[in-house]
Amino acid sequence: MAQPQPTPMTDNSTGMSYLDSLPRRVVTVFLPLLVFVFVLLFPFYWMAITAVKPNFQLTDYNNYSPLWVVQPTLDHIKYLLFETSYPHWLWNTVYISVAATVISLVTSVFAAYAIERLRFNGSRWVGLGIFLAYLVPPSILFIPLAIMVFGLGIYDTKLALILTYPTFLVPFSTWLLMGYFRSIPFELEECALVDGASRWQILIKVLLPLSVPGLISAGIFSFTLSWNEFIYALTFIQSSENKTVPVGVLTELVRSDVYEWGSLMAGALIGSLPVVILYSFFVDYYVSSMTGAVKE
């Protein structure tokens, strides 16, 4: 059956670790792991602590330890929320990511079902083509896409991003859902077919309810990818009120003379929070979508 999570996630067997003495494990396992975790997490701590530091402490390392904050302030965050277009950018990013994700998911469900289950003539080649499409990086598409976006008259609109993001979301989601559909037994569909269900009914009433975990994986992954997208948003959007968070923070908060590190870090932190929160609720789905895409 299509179980949401692979079982190794909760592997608590001791294995052969009893062969190692505790001091040895501390040196070979725990110490390196702590160093890894420290290095991987320190930038987030640094981001957070800078975001709440008053300006005079930011550059005064002699009187204040840079690692801690005395009299934390919300000034940077207030400045960000009330004196810049940051709330606009946040809203734009949410709007664009949700729209692109929904479009991609619907498109991908049909495509994956057609390739994996309807097995029309040439479906194998289409499947391979989808995989290859996944490997085309945005860096080589943004110039021709910019010309197209201009030609279509959607330059500097949210629609430009909503329509172009699926170019990398659809191949990914289709590939992921194909793998997921493959894990659902054929017999269920055959039963429904014998009972007189149409293909449409089978897709809606049999396959999709069983694929909810796969849909969640594809959905949150697509959402994160759209949220993080940069080069299209940088190229296709001009006006401040249509920018997304990554582009807005970089192009509007950075002024050439003085770097407002406090508000920059606050902007980076708040811009990361939605994906981090989403991620923390769906870690396992996230991991399975990442590894699922690799394992196929």
């Binding site: 991987l40 997490l41 930038p43 987030f44 949220w227 923070v249 980076a268």
Partner: peptide, 20 residues
């Protein structure tokens, strides 16, 4: 869960942290 965080947050935003 914690180890995967750097990969989840937007590259541009973590790059800004590295800039600092």
């Amino acid at each position: 869960a914690v180890v995967l965080l750097p990969w989840v947050v937007p590259t541009v935003l973590s790059a800004i942290a590295f800039w600092w």
